[in-house]
Computed example of a mutant assay.
Amino acid sequence: MTTDQTQAPAIRVRGVEKSFGDLHVLRGVDLDVRAGSILALLGSNGAGKTTLVRILSTLLSADAGTVTVQGFDVATQAADVRRTISLTGQFAAVDEVLTGRENLVLVARLRHLKNPGAVADDLLARFSLTDAGDRRAGTYSGGMRRRLDIAMSLIGDPPVIVLDEPTTGLDPQSRIEVWQTVRALAAGGTTVLLTTQYLEEAEQLADRIAILHDGTILQNGTLAELKQLLPPATVEYVEKQPTLEDVFLALVTEAPTSTRKEA
């Protein structure tokens, strides 16, 4: 991971607003994601996570505010943004009729890469899928399909990858496999924006955590910084350290009524 704190963020979000009719989904979101880091965007269903992801990946236009990815403006330089970003949605987008290797080769050919077979073999090895490479993806476990999906997203070496709730619906073992993959991405220098509604996932993976509630960022910081937001407590006999769940519940409970959705 980069240690240059003066470097411009890989993703910068300023004052982003989005409404659908009378429903205000995003209400002036500000967010930075440092290059080579993992930021977890934590929020419950309906908080606005997927809407923000669609805006920064050029799939949806904001009503107000600006978003840049690797210095490119998503509104005016969409083609440049698409060349530098990869989006993995909530559900694995693999072709279950093809083998794992064929899925990777197909994407490599669509991206006009030289020697797509070598690209596929490299990614199969990188994601511990070599032994299953010649099996149909439809026979893969949930964790294997998700790892293949992420591998497909990395074809072309995008510097930024967005994972929208990547472990939704997975069993505990598959979740751990995906977590290992995400950690490896960041260790290799890839910037990761991870949306999740799982407190444990954010706590396990993220360098920084942004809590999104009713379209606004309630807090944004490291896990240690967020835990400091809770008032100190006197405990007899047993000292209990605050968890991310404690922080999240306290912030959501104390959120001003102005941030709540209008009826």
Rank of each mutant, 00 (worst) to 15 (best):
N220H: 14
L194W: 04
S61H: 13
K261M: 06
E165P: 14
L223I: 08
D246Q: 04
A79F: 02
L229H: 12
S174F: 04
L110P: 00
R83P: 00
I211D: 08
A8Y: 01
M1G: 15
T234Q: 01
L87Q: 08
L124I: 04
F72G: 06
V119F: 04
A64K: 14
T139P: 00
A92N: 08
S44Q: 13
A79G: 06
L124Y: 05
S61E: 14
L39E: 10
E102P: 12
I150R: 03
Q204I: 11
Q197T: 07
V192I: 05
L244E: 05
V107L: 15
Q90E: 10
G189I: 05
E245L: 05
R27P: 03
T216K: 10
T195S: 08
A92P: 05
T216G: 14
P159N: 07
A93R: 06
L226T: 11
V182H: 09
D22A: 15
R111E: 01
V94Y: 04
A64D: 15
Q219A: 15
A125M: 11
F127I: 14
L98V: 04
V178F: 10
P166L: 08
R135W: 01
L113N: 07
T167W: 00
L59P: 00
R126T: 10
Q90A: 14
S153V: 08
G143Y: 03
G36K: 06
S174P: 01
S37P: 12
R109V: 05
L199M: 15
T51C: 15
Q70I: 04
I209L: 08
R145L: 00
P256L: 03
S174G: 09
Q180F: 00
F127L: 14
I55N: 13
L31T: 06
S174M: 02
Q241V: 07
T68Y: 00
A187Q: 07
A93T: 06
S86V: 10
A120S: 15
T76Y: 07
T130Q: 13
A250G: 02
T3S: 13
E254D: 14
S44R: 09
A40L: 11
G15W: 00
I55K: 11
T190A: 06
S141L: 02
